[in-house]
């Protein structure tokens, strides 16, 4: 049982928790995206910790982190695209006002 591993995993869990809180509690699209970024950051810490402390000889662990970084970038690009489109048609990106998405 390694304390370093547990420290890193706890950091990951804490970032994940903060991210969940942010993504659920904020009303602004951009702030929600910040929460999602934190969730992905938590996942990344875990992946690096698993790579370092459990399987340092397999490069696939590092590869996975690169993929998560890609996901972050894609999430940003598409999220801001949606935000711009929404702002242009409705004048705000407040999610409380997006009631028409309820159907």
């Amino acid at each position: 049982m390694s304390i370093e591993l547990i420290l890193a995993l706890t950091t990951g869990a804490a970032l994940f928790g903060v991210g969940i809180y942010g993504a659920l509690s904020q009303t602004n699209l951009v702030m929600i995206m910040m929460g999602v970024e934190l969730i992905l950051a938590g996942a990344m810490v875990n992946l690096v910790a698993f790579w370092r402390f459990l399987h340092p000889d397999t490069a696939a662990g590092q590869m996975f982190v690169l993929i998560v970084m890609t996901v972050m970038a894609i999430e940003m690009a598409v999220g801001f695209g949606v935000a711009i489109a929404r702002f242009r048609s409705r004048g705000s990106v407040e999610m409380e006002e997006a009631v028409e998405l309820k159907g």
Partner: peptide, 27 residues
């Protein structure tokens, strides 16, 4: 309130998994 609870529960769950799972040999 809901989001605080959701965040807290996922944090505690993550820590519990980190502490109680046997991770096997450490490199």
């Amino acid at each position: 309130r809901l989001s605080l609870w959701a965040g807290f529960v996922s944090f505690v769950g993550g820590v519990a998994i980190a502490v109680f799972v046997d991770w096997g040999p450490i490199a």
